[in-house]
Computed example of a mutant assay.
Amino acid sequence: MSSIKTEKNKEIIILGIESSCDDTSAAIIKNRTILSNVVAGQKVHEEYGGVVPELASRAHQQNIIPVVDLAIKRAGILKKDISAVAFTRGPGLLGSLLVGTSFAKGFSLASGIPLIEVNHLQGHVLALFINEKDKEYNPPQFPFLCLLVSGGNSQIILVRDYLDMEVIGQTIDDAAGEAFDKCAKVMGLPYPGGPHVDRLAKLGNPDRFEFSKPRIPNLDYSFSGLKTNFLYFLRDNLKEEPDFIEKNQEDLCASLQKTIIDILLAKLKKAAKQTGIKEITVAGGVSANSGLRNALQKSAKKYHWNLQIPKFEYTMDNAAMIAITGYFKFLNKEFVGQNVVPFARTQL
Rank of each mutant, 00 (worst) to 15 (best):
T281G: 00
P190R: 15
S19G: 11
V197D: 11
Q308A: 06
N289T: 12
G225P: 05
G50T: 07
E11P: 04
N138G: 00
K247Y: 11
Q141F: 09
M1C: 08
R215N: 12
I168E: 01
L231E: 11
L121S: 03
V197P: 12
F343M: 14
Q347C: 05
F107R: 03
D251F: 06
Q62H: 12
T259Q: 06
L219M: 10
I13C: 13
I277G: 01
V286C: 08
L226H: 07
K43L: 12
K333D: 15
A344S: 15
L94H: 10
A271D: 04
L70Q: 10
D198S: 12
S224M: 09
S3R: 10
V186L: 11
S222A: 15
T281A: 03
G90W: 15
L126M: 10
V68N: 08
G326W: 13
M321C: 00
C21A: 14
K298G: 00
E11N: 15
D198L: 03
A323T: 06
D173N: 13
C21T: 10
E46H: 06
G106Y: 11
S57T: 13
K185A: 14
L307M: 05
Q347P: 00
K311N: 03
V125H: 05
G326S: 13
T88A: 09
V67C: 02
D81S: 11
P114T: 07
S2F: 12
K270L: 10
S57Q: 13
I82E: 11
S3H: 06
K133R: 06
S222K: 08
S111W: 04
A40M: 07
L348R: 04
P206C: 08
S212V: 12
N138I: 11
A56Y: 06
G284D: 04
S25F: 09
G151Y: 11
A59C: 08
L158R: 01
C253W: 03
V286K: 05
L35T: 03
K298Y: 00
I64R: 12
V282R: 00
E210M: 09
S287G: 07
V159K: 02
T275Q: 03
E7V: 14
S19F: 11
Q347A: 13
F144L: 00
G194T: 02
R293D: 02
K270R: 07
L296Q: 01
L163Y: 05
K5L: 15
R89K: 12
A323G: 03
L98P: 05
Q347I: 08
V85C: 14
L231C: 04
K301T: 00
L348K: 03
E250L: 05
V85W: 14
D23N: 07
G41A: 13
I130P: 00
A300V: 07
A175W: 15
T315M: 06
V341D: 15
L203G: 05
G285W: 08
A56C: 09
V67D: 02
W305E: 00
K105L: 11
G41M: 13
T6D: 15
Y162V: 03
S20V: 13
A104H: 02
F312K: 09
R215T: 02
T101R: 05
P143G: 03
Q308D: 01
M1S: 14
D174E: 09
M187L: 14
G225V: 04
V186E: 06
G193T: 07
D220C: 08
P143L: 04
K80T: 08
E241A: 05
L70K: 12
L70A: 04
L109V: 05
N218T: 02
L115C: 08
G169T: 02
